[in-house]
């Protein structure tokens, strides 16, 4: 075994995580290599320091303001749901309004959405496209969505892209925006953002916004393959920070 190979194996060796034959090879090398013995001692000291100080850093942690209230709200809302399916369908999002409770208890998403159309003036859509389908998707997403779950925070405002759905005809980006209060203060068009394929923006087709949940579904034209995709939102009127950008990777 070379010195370099031994050094890569040292953390596993020190923790007793090597199998017998590999452990013996490392031990045989150490028996006649003073430099690697010194290195082993240094790695051991370094590992102890990292573990000790990381723990101390964690133990000194204090909760950010409002965290407990947020957790209590989350526990109550989750507790109100009647089934794992409903929860799974909704996904989880902090700051979600009480409004979701009603939805979460319904097993049939279509039936729920139909009810919502008549009862939720806060839900709005751009370009007059079908609201029912949009609400169902806002709730649970489509089956062939690619999970993203990436967030970027600037000036306390967090853009989180939950997922992207690709098809031959269109690309849908599902995101939420938190830290700005209600989305109601913004125009629907402001929330469209831009989907860049490389440096080229894809054409915007539709924006659907659910104000109570802060969840937005934006539909663009079809994305080319093998081109990196970036979703960019903002800057938004009277909202600090921005633009917010999330790299989405490539169309699969």
């Amino acid at each position: 075994m070379t010195c370099e190979r031994v050094r890569v194996e040292l953390p596993a060796y020190l923790a007793g995580e090597l199998d017998e034959s590999a452990s013996r090879l490392v031990a045989e090398h150490l028996a006649h290599c003073a430099a690697c013995i010194e290195e082993m001692k240094a790695v051991e000291r370094l590992q102890e320091r990292i573990a000790r100080e990381l723990r101390a850093w964690v133990d000194a942690g204090t909760a950010p303001p409002g965290l407990e209230a947020e957790l209590r709200r989350a526990v109550r809302m989750a507790g109100a749901r009647t089934g794992a399916e409903a929860e799974e369908a909704l996904g989880f999002q902090h700051g979600r309004a009480e409004w979701w409770r009603t939805l979460a208890t319904a097993a049939a998403a279509v039936a729920v959405a139909l009810l919502l159309v008549s009862s939720l003036p806060e839900s709005r859509t751009l370009e007059g496209l079908p609201v029912v389908g949009g609400l169902v998707q806002l709730l649970q997403g489509a089956g062939d969505e690619v999970p993203v779950e990436r967030a970027v925070t600037r000036d306390g405002v967090t853009l989180r892209v939950h997922s992207v759905r690709y098809s031959r005809h269109e690309t849908q980006v599902r995101y939420s925006l938190t830290g700005i209060g209600s989305l109601d203060r913004l125009e629907t068009g402001d929330l469209a953002g831009t989907l860049l394929a490389g440096t080229e923006p894809l054409p915007l087709r539709k924006v659907q916004v659910d104000v109570p949940s802060g969840r937005v579904l934006v539909t663009f034209g079809a994305a080319p393959r093998r081109v990196p995709l970036i979703y960019r939102l903002g800057p938004l009127p009277e909202v600090p920070g921005g633009p917010w950008e999330v790299e989405l990777g490539f169309r699969p």
Partner: peptide, 24 residues
């Protein structure tokens, strides 16, 4: 709470994901 929050932050690398993980 504070310890758990920092643990999640350290593992996930950002505060937004840490909050989500902690809530779940």
């Amino acid at each position: 709470q504070g310890k758990l929050y920092r643990t999640a932050w350290a593992i996930l690398g950002n505060e937004a994901d840490a909050r989500d993980a902690l809530q779940e």
